[in-house]
Design a binder for these strands. Structure first.
Lengths: 159, 159
DNA sequence: AGTGAAACGACCGTAGA
DNA sequence: TCTACGGTCGTTTCACT
């Protein structure tokens, strides 16, 4: 499908404040019934259902389970700043392949690649960083360990 | 509630591989029926529902709508690395208050605070960075604009 | 903690404005 | 694109294992 067509379609969908309100409701609880959302935004259940389905089809949003790494035993998180040589995206994709990497983005600036890692403990973190540093295309890395998460919203970026 | 008690409870909940499987299913589609998940993991619908409710109550996961900033017209994303003076968490919280900031974490390392920003265009990005730099406690900042997102998983960290 | 069954409520297609 | 409505399927409760 044409990317621009999809995008303009999506923007039309959301220009309406009601869709924004629907998204906000689902950001609080993604499993509430269409009827409950309908009551909040003042529309019929069927209309809300249609809008939600279109928003998901147009890939404006998706409804997923989000987990707390701490509760799953991953007590160490960090952002690894990577300088790369050669093919940026290929290197980034190799980094992204690691199971401990939950977020990976190519950036412009002093650093080429950002990778967020989720580890069980310091030993796991060290191993992960060491693995990253040996990946082909990784020139150097710098690790910023997380001390306190202050804000987390759920956006979803496309490639 | 006692944090350790909550955590050990959560770990008990997930030690069972079935809960892992349930979480994985819901990470693919958070709105599918309990019956559909039950069929996948080989348990009765009622048992799956109980587990999901407990996982949510124990804050191991939550089911929410995740949006694509691009589709909502936010075409510029960046990670802002902030050096701070004075109270770290207070400064981080002031940064986190900005609507354009969707992610904010206090780190150990060369940089004190990481803030991911989501902006409509370059002008919006410039304004946002300028605003951040004038926040009390922000000493300096460095911006890494996003070129290509390669991986995104949905974890949720507690403060 | 899991199962099974019956009452209830949500979901979904269709028709019409 | 919305509302209205009925058939169907999912959810919930409860008694039992």
């Amino acid at each position: 499908m044409n990317r621009d067509a999809t995008q303009s379609h999506a923007e039309l969908l959301v220009q309406d404040g009601i869709s924004r309100a629907i998204i906000e409701e689902l950001q609080r609880n993604g499993r509430q019934s269409y009827a409950a959302v309908a009551k909040e935004v003042g529309l019929s259940e069927a209309a809300v259902r249609q809008r939600i389905q279109k928003l998901i089809e147009a890939q404006v949003m998706k409804i997923v389970a989000v987990t707390d790494p701490m509760q799953l035993g991953f007590t160490r998180q960090a952002m690894v700043l990577i300088r790369s040589h050669g093919d940026l995206t290929a290197t980034a994709d190799r980094v992204a392949e690691l199971p401990n990497v939950d977020y990976c983005v190519v950036t412009a600036g002093r650093t080429d690649i950002l990778a967020e890692v989720v580890c069980t403990d310091d030993e796991d973190l060290l191993e992960t960083i060491n693995t990253i540093r040996q990946i082909e295309g990784v020139a150097s890395s710098e690790t910023l360990t997380y001390l306190s998460l202050r804000k987390q919203e759920y956006d979803w970026g496309t490639k």
